[in-house]
Simulated assay, not measured.
Amino acid sequence: MEIVKLVADLKSKISSYKSKGKSIGFVPTMGALHRGHLSLTKESVKNNDVTVVSIFVNPTQFNNPDDLKTYPRTITEDLDKLSAYQPDLIFIPEVEEIYPESDSRVFKFGHLDQVMEGKNRPGHFNGVAQVVSKLFNMVEPDNAYFGRKDFQQVAVIKQMVKDLHLSVSVVACPIIRETDGLAMSSRNLLLSLEERKNASKISETLFKARNLVPALSVIELRDWVIEEINKNPYLSVEYFEIVDDTKLLPIESWEDTNEKIGCITVQVGKVRLIDNVTF
């Protein structure tokens, strides 16, 4: 497990691996690693000759400066956790390495980045596309691993790969949850004890909602989930949408598409938590 901080050094090592015909797996992260990130690392190590994990808090995807400032940074603990999985390279660049100049690129994803997170966090997915496209160019992975908790982000990255004609396979891996069902997130570290205790109501409600299909209509179920979570004084639903799993368009009937995804964002105190469930 080798730590690399400079792009030039990273590219040199990747070039050496590729000259030997080795496959490259890549796990991009913003640090504050949990079992979700580690499951992606494990999957990459299992299925590739070489695994690269990046730790970089990307400033261009934060539309709220306070959110960027308070995002947890735990490099020492992250490296300790990764050591159990032995990825080959850990890329930990400074902002100036990734953005030697301001990135003015504007990506167009049509409907994909205009709904849900895109609607509520203007510019967020453009920032994601900026950094992920840069990292893909630096790492040149054969496979890149992302968690399904960020379902909309995965859809956007897949579209970006298609639009830019990149030769990388985007692998979406299952959501990893705490014992009480809460989807693992680096932001969970920012919750108070009482907020953390009540945050499990999010997944609990989503799981109950699956049992109400098709007894309730799509609209009835959407309203039920929002009302059920908002009953908790610690929680406030920002949005809950039931969409198809490819174009992320809202569905009107349970017969509209083969796979339906319920995507939610909930404000817990000052912390935004996202989750989703397949119906």
Rank of each mutant, 00 (worst) to 15 (best):
Y239K: 04
V171G: 04
V27A: 05
L10R: 06
I219D: 07
Y17G: 04
L206W: 01
Q61G: 06
E101K: 13
V268W: 00
L40I: 08
V50T: 08
D88P: 07
T278G: 10
E252Q: 14
N120E: 10
A215H: 14
K149L: 03
Y17F: 15
V128I: 13
A129W: 12
E178T: 05
I157K: 11
N58T: 03
Q267T: 10
S83R: 14
E220H: 11
D275A: 01
S236K: 15
M1C: 06
D150I: 01
I251P: 05
L82V: 03
Q130D: 05
Y239P: 10
Y145F: 15
S12E: 15
G127R: 09
V168W: 01
K201I: 04
V57R: 00
S167L: 11
E2K: 15
A172G: 10
P233Y: 10
T60E: 02
K247A: 15
D78P: 03
V271R: 06
I92C: 00
R35H: 14
G123T: 05
A144R: 06
E96V: 12
I3P: 14
K5F: 14
E252C: 06
V4F: 13
E228T: 15
K69A: 11
N126K: 10
L166I: 11
D223A: 13
A144Q: 09
K208T: 10
M1A: 08
I274M: 14
L112C: 06
M1L: 05
D113V: 08
D67C: 09
F240H: 04
Y239F: 14
N126D: 13
F26N: 11
I251L: 10
S39L: 08
E228R: 08
T29I: 04
V268M: 02
I92E: 00
I176V: 15
D88W: 05
D9I: 14
L112R: 05
M138R: 09
E94S: 15
A155L: 13
Y234V: 07
V170H: 07
E259R: 13
I261F: 06
V213I: 15
V27Y: 04
N232Y: 02
P59N: 01
V170L: 07
M138T: 06
I274R: 11
K42E: 15
K247L: 13
